Amino acid sequence: MSDAMGEFPVPDIEELPDDVRARIEAETEDAGFTPNVFAAFAYRPSHFRAFFAYHDALVEQTALEREEIEMLIVTVSGVNDCYYCTVAHGALLRIYADDPYLADQLAANHRAADLAEPHRTMLDVAVKLTDSPGEVDSEDIERLREVGFSDEAAWDIASVTAYYNLSNRMANFADMRPNEEFHTLGR
């Protein structure tokens, strides 16, 4: 875990609060390794709790499919040059979409990917919210509705986009490094 990030010290798991340590241990058991984002965010336990509580809400209480969430994350992370998230969530997208190519296409340029119109629109809006948030308006929400997204799904698209803009900025700032395992998952 000590190589989870380059700019700040990674805490010793044994010195963490019980709830944070338990969450990291559970994630390690699920994945078979400790995803570095858990080790890195443990640097500030109160932030760790808030960060992962919101993450859990985004993926567990959503109108979106998990594949769509990962599509958003990889696309936004590509726009933000976030090495950690394009690699880690690229692996998850390969698994959820059962597609070995989609993550690489979205990380590089979502407009070059072979996407259905609803997903292209979803990603266009996410990129606009990432690159030019002050230009997003009701027309963008209407575009999402026109291609079949409910109001709840449109909200969730914006929520995932906003959350991963935060996550990408923290990962870049702290120099979070993706685990080697993520590079080969789902290939």
Rank of each mutant, 00 (worst) to 15 (best):
G6F: 03
F8L: 15
F8Q: 05
P9K: 11
P11G: 04
P11A: 03
D12I: 05
E15G: 04
L16G: 11
V20W: 03
V20A: 03
R21L: 01
A22S: 08
R23H: 09
E25Y: 01
E25S: 14
A26V: 04
E27M: 14
E27K: 13
E27A: 14
T28W: 08
T28C: 00
T28R: 15
E29L: 14
E29W: 02
D30G: 08
F33V: 09
F33P: 01
Y43R: 07
R44V: 04
R44Y: 08
S46R: 13
H47E: 00
H47S: 12
F48R: 02
A50E: 14
A53W: 04
A53G: 01
A57F: 12
T62H: 06
L64D: 09
R66L: 14
E67S: 13
E68W: 10
I69S: 11
E70N: 09
M71A: 04
I73W: 07
T75H: 02
V76I: 13
V76C: 05
S77Q: 06
N80I: 00
T86A: 06
T86N: 04
H89E: 12
H89W: 12
A91D: 09
L92E: 09
L93Y: 13
A97N: 02
D98C: 00
A103Q: 06
Q105F: 03
L106A: 05
A107C: 06
A108W: 05
N109V: 11
H110T: 02
D114Y: 03
A116K: 10
A116I: 03
H119R: 15
R120H: 15
R120S: 11
A126F: 12
K128L: 13
K128C: 00
D131E: 15
S132M: 08
V136E: 01
S138W: 05
L144T: 08
G148R: 04
W155D: 05
W155L: 04
I157G: 08
A158H: 09
S159W: 13
V160T: 09
V160I: 14
Y164I: 10
N165W: 00
N172H: 03
D175V: 13
D175P: 05
D175I: 02
P178V: 00
E180D: 15
F182R: 01
L185H: 01
G186T: 09
